[in-house]
Design a protein around this nucleic acid. Structure first.
Lengths: 340, 340
DNA sequence: CTGAAAGCGCTTACAG
DNA sequence: CTGAAAGCGCTTACAG
């Protein structure tokens, strides 16, 4: 492994000059830089990042902290494009990525903060953490800059978040159903401790309210973003409320479970029951009937989060909230009802 | 940030002793270790990995090098479970992961070797690299230990590989079709420069041969693992060979494309044409008709690759080839033909 | 525009 | 069982 001293020996310049030339500093003449760069190339020089980071006392690495129930995320595949988005921005802006996957078996894992400190990360991106997560508070209280994806820590105005306008997204989904003349619209939500679920509930309620439709308490259910829970929840919901003509599910995976549950009740979709999802995962367009849903751009989410954290670091930009646009994808799972 | 010197000051022990105690070396008394560990905890000590790696001149980081045409892999979602598998093994064995995603726009990227050298990685896992890839040779010629997933470098016996028995997998798929009395079985392969494609072709040919079925040249097509190419390829294939009753596709994604192509030809699956895939991606069980396929365990692939590279590193174990089992999943896309 | 020197936080051969 | 000292490969204030 060649190091700076080898280039120093080869060119006759001092260690200082070699280092500065390699880093393209202003106070080195072009001529010198050329000589040194050539020598570096000839000697196949590759800088030692550990030494560099140790010396400058910070690094250009961003931690991406993913908390994912693995089984589910293998089906939804939302994290992979997100990861690609983060990587795309980072790798083209001289940053590195440190992945921290939170396993279901949490015990082996150090805290995020420990992970970040150990490797001197410059900043962190947190995704899919529940609002009641303990570590998230730790990070918020540490000196490590971070941006949140889809989460929102309460009682703190000083933060950066990348998210959808989930109130609006849920509103759009519900309004779509209402426009198709559905009135008995149930809502299958995810998890009470998740920011997106809270917002989607608000959007649903608001749309129903705007259309002057009363929402019975029993229309609102929670299935924890799980496919199988959704299947069982749907059966219970419809059995208790046979009048329901449409269900808005807060995720496509739950909509898939609901589809299965409906099948088990011998209900045809959309003839007997209309379904609308959220996310637009790949499976959504392949199921029969294909799933009408609110589409979101996971790649962009990751990309924007990476951009946000790095510009905050590099340009000392202020913390802010970035909204990723969503859009309704009309497919086959919703039926228009006759006006009464 | 507390460092070793702070613990040294707090406990009165030397830097050497503190370091050794923290690393649980044998030649430090239990009593001393206890004192030092407590101080470390109290002071919230977190070791600086950069300093450590710099000093020991190697690291416990494994590079995972993924080359993925992003659009396709968002649908197949095979890389995410693989990543989880790698991470699971590594994180529970004191190793770290450095992700290197090869973008379609290659130009910005350094070579793998450069990436690995820069951060002093202990070893690398390469997945999905074509056999004609240039960088792969570079790595093979470097001193960096590596294991390959699904690829096989020719003319080198000294290597570690994690893969399926793809000859057998393809054989099983083809034999299944033959057992269902199909005789006009076409094969839609991936890419000529991929190890898996070569093996799957061999398996297909071998099965056809074992059953004494002649294979016309025009039955063998290549669709580059792309869904849309598969769609077009199937239409061309069937138009040219209307006698074909079944197609074995070397990936589920291609089978999905073939399904679409068949639909465009007004062919019903499996009534008019039987289809079998490879991989068992999540979508396979959700399409209508659901896809009969060869299932592989991507999580295990990653896990085993990580295990292989680290045991080679730690225990100086020999290079070897690990075979991940496959299994045929019977679903709805294949029809049994009447015996003639 | 260039160079000598110090130091980032750790580990480890060596001596006792 | 413990410690003093050197050094991993870099960057950067400082001096010239």
């Amino acid at each position: 492994m060649t190091k700076i001293d080898d280039i120093m020996a080869a060119t006759g310049f001092s260690r200082t000059t070699v280092s500065k030339a390699l880093n393209d500093k202003e106070d080195i003449s072009e001529k010198t830089k050329k000589i040194i760069r050539k020598a570096a190339r000839d000697l196949n020089y590759i800088p030692n990042i550990n030494a560099r980071n140790l010396r400058i006392k910070h690094s250009r690495v961003i931690a991406l902290i993913l908390s994912s129930p693995s089984k589910e995320s293998e089906k939804t595949n939302t994290l992979y494009p997100l990861l690609m988005g983060v990587n795309k921005y980072l790798s083209s802006h001289g940053y590195e990525l440190a992945l921290y996957l939170i396993d279901s078996e949490r015990q082996t894992m150090k805290s995020y903060v420990g992970f970040c400190r150990e490797r001197n990360v410059a900043g962190a991106i947190l995704v899919g953490i529940k609002t009641d997560d303990d570590y998230i508070r730790q990070l918020a209280n540490s000196e490590i800059p971070y941006v949140l994806i889809d989460v929102d820590i309460r009682n703190t105005t000083h933060k950066s978040v990348v998210k959808l306008d989930d109130v609006r997204g849920a509103y759009d989904a519900t309004a779509y159903l209402l426009e198709k003349n559905h009135r008995h619209i149930a809502f299958m939500n995810g998890n009470k401790n998740s920011t997106v679920s809270e917002e989607r509930l608000r959007g649903y309620m608001q749309a129903m309210d705007d259309y002057g439709v009363f929402v019975p308490k029993s229309y609102i259910t929670y299935a924890d973003f799980s496919e199988d829970t959704a299947r069982r929840t749907l059966k219970r919901l419809i059995t208790k409320n046979p009048g329901v003509t449409a269900v808005f599910c807060a995720s496509d995976l739950m909509a898939l479970g609901a589809m299965q549950g409906a099948r088990e009740l011998s209900l045809t979709i959309p003839a007997d029951l209309s379904l609308i999802g959220y996310d637009d995962i790949p499976i959504a367009s392949y199921v029969k009937p294909s799933l009408t849903t609110i589409s979101q751009d996971f790649h962009k989410k990751g990309y924007e989060a990476a951009k946000l954290i790095t510009t905050q670091l590099d340009e000392n930009e202020d913390k802010k909230i970035v909204i990723i646009p969503h859009r309704l994808i009309e497919r086959e799972s919703v039926k228009r009802l006759e006006e009464r």
